[in-house]
Simulated assay, not measured.
Amino acid sequence: MKIILLSISVMLAVKTANTQPLIIEGLAGNDYLFYQHLIAKKISDKSPFGIMHIANVSSFYQSNKVKKAAEVMNQAYITSKLNRSLTLLTGIFYSNATNVRIAAGIQYAAVFKNGLWVTVPRVDIMKNGSVELMSMLEFQPPVKEHTKLYVRLQVMSNYGPYQHNRSYQRVRLGVTIKGTQIGAGMNFDEYGKDTKVYVNTGIFLRKEIN
Rank of each mutant, 00 (worst) to 15 (best):
L6W: 06
S7L: 15
S7A: 14
S9G: 14
M11P: 01
A13F: 08
V14F: 08
K15T: 08
A17D: 01
T19H: 15
I23Q: 03
I23K: 05
G26Y: 07
N30H: 12
D31L: 08
Q36D: 10
L38C: 01
K41N: 11
I43V: 13
I43K: 07
I43N: 12
S44R: 11
D45G: 13
D45W: 03
S47D: 14
V57W: 07
Q62H: 15
V66M: 09
K67P: 02
A70T: 14
A70E: 06
T79R: 00
T79C: 05
K81P: 01
L82Y: 03
L89E: 00
Y94R: 01
Y94C: 04
S95T: 15
N96I: 05
N96K: 10
T98G: 05
A103Y: 02
A104E: 11
G105E: 00
Y108S: 11
L116T: 05
V118P: 00
P121H: 03
V123P: 02
D124R: 02
M126R: 13
N128R: 15
E132R: 09
L137C: 13
Q140T: 15
P141F: 08
V143A: 11
L153M: 13
S157L: 06
N158Q: 13
Y159R: 06
Y159L: 07
P161C: 07
Y162E: 11
R166N: 08
Q169G: 13
Q169S: 13
R170T: 03
R172S: 02
G174R: 00
T176M: 11
I177H: 14
G183N: 03
F188A: 11
D189A: 10
Y191V: 12
Y191M: 09
G192D: 11
T195C: 02
V197S: 09
L205E: 01
E208Y: 12
E208T: 12
